[in-house]
Amino acid sequence: MVLNQQPILEDLSFSIVEPSFVAVVGPNGAGKTTLLKTMLGIIKPVEGEIRVLGRNPVEDPGVRRLVGYVPQRERIDPLIPVLVKDIILMGRLAKKRFPRRATSEDLEKARQVARLLEVDQFWEESYAHLSGGQQQRVLVARALASEPSLLLLDEPFSAVDTPTTQLLVRLLRELVDKSGVTIILVTHEINVLLKHIDRLMLLNRRIIAFGKPDEVLDEALLTETFLKRVQVVASDGERIVTGVSYHA
């Protein structure tokens, strides 16, 4: 993948079995967001082919209707006056054909995911009035409102409170187990996810390692990914990654 004439990702080859919960970690500039955008068909690979749910997202943009995407919250201007209900409904209406009218089913589904993400009480509120964690939950609710088969999340735990992080992790795991949704999540918060994910990808311009967390959680591989010494320590029977810096 090339962005602004600069190669971002090279020699990428992997496949994900449905349903799975996959976390992608790597330093800043590793190409994590580029990977998600390539899966959406927003960025075209220079060479090779990518298949999402069995379809090529570049040649067949219709596949985007089956994919839920949560962008980095920082990329959205929080001062734009828009109601929470409009944002959540957007997840369904943007994927419908013109004139995108909301049916009672759309409203019911949107309310349902709002309750799931515990943002139902803010239904008529302005997005700008919410805290960072609440805004993040609204964005996840928007992605879930469309009932996606594949959910892509870009840094969903960035600058959000601990209860929101815990709620999201629990909810995402349930989605995989109960609804069969495949989740690919780009994150800096590797430790909160370790117990819950099926696969872990270490990425820095190329795939350093991809497999079960136990296999991938190797100090040498993590050090190669983050280009500095990273340690894996055991605490209360759980493994914790320390010394991770995202500025390679």
């Binding site: 927003i42 985007r64 995407y69 949560v70 962008p71 990329r75 201007d77 892509l152």
Partner: peptide, 12 residues
């Protein structure tokens, strides 16, 4: 206006 990146991802 609210989220061009997200809108594009949703197929708009």
């Amino acid at each position: 206006t609210f989220d061009p990146e997200g809108s594009s991802a949703m197929g708009l």
